[in-house]
């Protein structure tokens, strides 16, 4: 009894992004089925998404894909922030998880026709020899030192091979710049919520942001556009010097020494004020990406780097007065199952 609508599987449903994409797709009339996969329960309320609990490496994916006959997989579960897990977890989730996913999607008889991967501009690194705007084709210059960067590079190289071997699957890789949003905890957002914001003495890098809404919109765009394939940078227009970011956010700088910065940060991370190591290079050299490829494909942004920052700052101001405005949601398996499957629930036609 399969209908004609799209059947979509989302990995990392418990992450902010997974949940938000599911919410956005739920309101889509063309989307018939949404299956969410994660090792943890969702953190946002979902109407009709079916949640499946998996281990971190998504080993049940092959079975799940066959059983649900999904035509689209949105891989939103990768860790792009070192503070979200140790090296082990990053390796399991990003590298091994993606390998399992690619195996399932590329298996003989697989029903999947579209694969959307949420990657990060961390794949470009940040260093003194970098161009100011990386295009999707510009090779990385700086060596990858952190586990999260290495895992993303591994994932993208597996993806390249996957694309070559599986021409029947439309593969879209979206590389997102530093995300800012009032509702999401990101490395730079965290840096801007501390009483003093970190700044490396003598460096004033140009930073490019992408607003949280544009992240979800870009992922939904990639799901919708059935002719879109390839690698795309996603970031707001323009770059802002970090000193100006601090000025706009009304933060005084906490100056870090330009040499042995990591060493100076070690005691801070002991007391929970650590910064992800991949951020240190970013705060030294900055990073920019050329976003024209996605614009040419027809995507339009609601935010530039500047307006993403402004919205973030406004959101912080509101939070400072009224506290968290999004009440915490708790996933209860039997409640969710009741609403989805009980014959007592009347579904409007």
């Amino acid at each position: 009894m399969r209908g004609v609508g799209r059947r979509i599987l989302i990995t990392g449903i418990a992450s902010f992004w997974g949940g938000r994409i599911a919410q956005a797709l739920e309101s889509h009339p063309d989307v018939e089925v949404i299956v969410g996969l994660d090792s943890d329960a969702p953190v946002v309320a979902l109407e009709r998404t079916e949640f499946v609990r998996a281990d971190e490496t998504y080993s049940i994916l092959a079975r799940l894909v066959t059983a649900t006959q999904v035509d689209t997989v949105v891989h939103a579960g990768m860790i792009v922030d070192s503070t979200r897990g140790g090296d082990r977890r990053i390796h399991e989730l990003n590298t091994i998880g993606t390998l399992n996913l690619l195996a399932a999607v590329g298996a003989a008889g697989s029903p999947v026709r579209s694969l959307i991967v949420k990657s990060s501009t961390l794949v470009y690194g940040a260093g003194p020899k970098d161009p100011y705007w990386f295009s999707e084709k510009t090779p990385r210059v700086a060596p990858a030192r952190t586990r999260v960067e290495r895992s993303l590079l591994e994932v993208e190289s597996y993806l390249n091979a996957f694309v070559e071997d599986n021409r029947q699957v439309r593969t879209v890789t979206l590389r997102f710049a530093s995300v800012l949003g009032a509702d999401i905890d990101t490395p730079l957002g965290r840096a801007l919520t501390l009483p003093l914001a970190p700044r490396i003495a003598g460096f004033d890098p140009q930073i490019q942001f992408v607003a949280q809404d544009d992240v979800v919109r870009a992922l939904v765009f990639a799901v919708e556009q059935e002719n879109l394939s390839g690698i795309f940078n996603v970031a707001g227009a323009g770059r802002i010097p970090w000193s100006e970011v601090l000025a706009l956010a009304g933060k005084a700088p906490f100056l870090l020494p330009p040499f042995a910065t990591g060493l100076a940060l070690a005691p801070l991370s002991r007391i929970g004020l650590g910064m992800a190591p991949e951020i240190i290079d970013l705060l030294r050299y900055g990073r920019g990406v050329d976003t024209r490829k996605l614009l040419r494909a027809g995507f339009s942004y609601t935010h530039s780097s500047l307006s993403a920052l402004q919205e973030f700052v406004e959101g912080r101001r509101l939070k400072a007065v009224v506290g968290e405005i999004v009440p915490t949601y708790r996933y209860e398996a039997d409640v969710e199952a009741f609403f989805r499957h009980s014959p007592a629930v009347v579904t409007p036609n």
């Binding site: 938000r20 100006e244 942004y301 999004v326 949601y329």
Partner: peptide, 30 residues
């Protein structure tokens, strides 16, 4: 934005807005 409701997917504004307004320095993209 309350109760984790549907994300308001706004229609896109006009593509990249010109920068200057709101900036506090005159540092250009280079």
């Amino acid at each position: 934005t309350t109760h984790g409701a549907l994300l308001p997917l706004r229609p896109a504004a006009n593509p990249p807005e010109p920068e200057p307004d709101g900036r506090v320095t005159d540092i250009d993209q280079w």
